[in-house]
Simulated scan of single mutants.
Amino acid sequence: MALAAALPDLEVVGAEVVRLPKITPATLFGSGKVAELAARFEAAGVDLVLVDGPVGPVQQRNLEKDWGVKLLDRTGLILEIFADRARTREGVLQVELAALSYQRTRLVRAWTHLERQRGGLGFVGGPGETQIEADRRAIDEEVVKIRRQLAKVVKTRELHRAARRKVPFPVVALVGYTNAGKSTLFNRMTGAEVLAKDMLFATLDPTMRGVVLPSGRKVILSDTVGFISDLPTQLVAAFRATLEEVLEADLILHVRDIAHPETEEQAADVGDILESLGVDEDVPIFEVWNKIDLLSPDTRAALLVQDARTPGIHAVSALTGEGIGALLAAMGQALDAERVAAEVFVPFSDGRRRAWLHEAGVVTDERPEEDGFRLSLLWTARQKAAFEAL
């Protein structure tokens, strides 16, 4: 239901759990159930049927024919939502690539007169290529074209990321299950106006903003696409690039909808995806228990006690702002805690690198020498790498 509600201008008139004693290869459901549903759809004036699960190409074709409606399975619905949400050039290309991969697997013989085109004027003159083969070839050519365009976009994004590495500010990434409240929290912390709605996949393209912590430290906050269980394989591959921002983070905020009945299962899904991405084990992760304003007073009080006793857990309400100040302060402490002492020499002629160190706020002492400055530093591994990349 939540996935269906994520598509705009879609009115959901009903939902039902259909138990299947066995799967019918041709129509998924048994003939009696197909006929019963056909009558109900006609009476209700239904134009679109959503099936929360996989529906085979042949099953989809047969059901659409029997019911006289358009049918989308779980993968098709998620693709429709992503297509509606994509805004950046890369996001649009990723959606197109995933959609083509999905369509390629769903080419079935819909019209027998197109099964084979008449043979050409070759030496043998046998049967021509099937319509399915022609469609598949056309899709393959389009996939190659999109991958070329995507390679250019990805290269540009990598250049932007390389430029950001030289920026002295740490990166904090928001991750979490879709609809956990990441964008609302992002807006609360940054004062931005990123689309934040009570729907799945409200955010698809990564968004970044600067934030000044209570300590005066500047950080870059990154909002990412929400995770979801049973994400179609085409989308796992296609949207992996949008999650790569997480790999650049100095601190990860795992935002959880703590009021959701399946919050533990959602957290486990997010943990699995972070592990598959190859997130560095040394990067600190905060669990941000969001939406405490939706809890009963007793549950909320118990969570606040657990918050106070457990390092790395922060109970907040992105909607009301409760707990946000304490979270920002803890972020500053975590980013400061990972700093290590170092000493560097910067020649007089290299004023840009010296200015960079001062702007980053990592200089604890500076002594002029004959040929330059000797600086004592307290910095993170990321700041050290950024300095060396200058």
Rank of each mutant, 00 (worst) to 15 (best):
T190A: 09
R352E: 01
V236W: 13
G351D: 06
T299S: 12
A386M: 05
N290I: 01
T203H: 14
E343I: 07
V143L: 13
M331F: 09
F123R: 12
R104M: 14
A302P: 07
A2Y: 12
V211Y: 06
A334H: 03
Y177C: 07
G226N: 03
A192T: 13
W289F: 05
A4T: 00
S276M: 11
R148M: 14
Q149D: 14
T88N: 02
I285L: 04
F387T: 00
E129G: 01
S229I: 13
E366V: 10
K197V: 01
G321D: 12
L303G: 11
G14K: 00
P311A: 14
G126Q: 04
P168H: 01
D293K: 11
V124A: 02
I228C: 02
V255D: 09
Q59V: 12
G323F: 05
A151N: 09
T320I: 13
E248P: 09
E370H: 03
D140R: 12
I273Q: 04
A268H: 03
T88L: 00
V255E: 04
A151E: 15
N179R: 05
K291P: 00
Q103Y: 15
A326F: 08
S183M: 02
G122K: 06
L213S: 03
D336K: 00
E343Q: 12
S349A: 15
I139P: 10
Q103R: 13
L20K: 11
V92F: 13
L71Q: 08
E36G: 04
R40L: 02
K65L: 09
K291F: 05
A6F: 00
T178N: 11
I146H: 11
Q149I: 15
L7P: 00
K145P: 04
L251R: 02
V175D: 03
G226D: 01
L37R: 03
P232G: 15
G30W: 03
G176S: 00
G312Q: 13
V236N: 13
E338S: 12
G216N: 06
L357V: 10
Q383E: 04
D282S: 05
L277T: 08
E115Y: 07
R354A: 14
I228N: 07
A308I: 08
G125C: 08
A134S: 14
R116I: 03
P25I: 10
A2N: 12
P25K: 09
H314N: 11
A202V: 10
R354E: 04
R382S: 11
H358K: 07
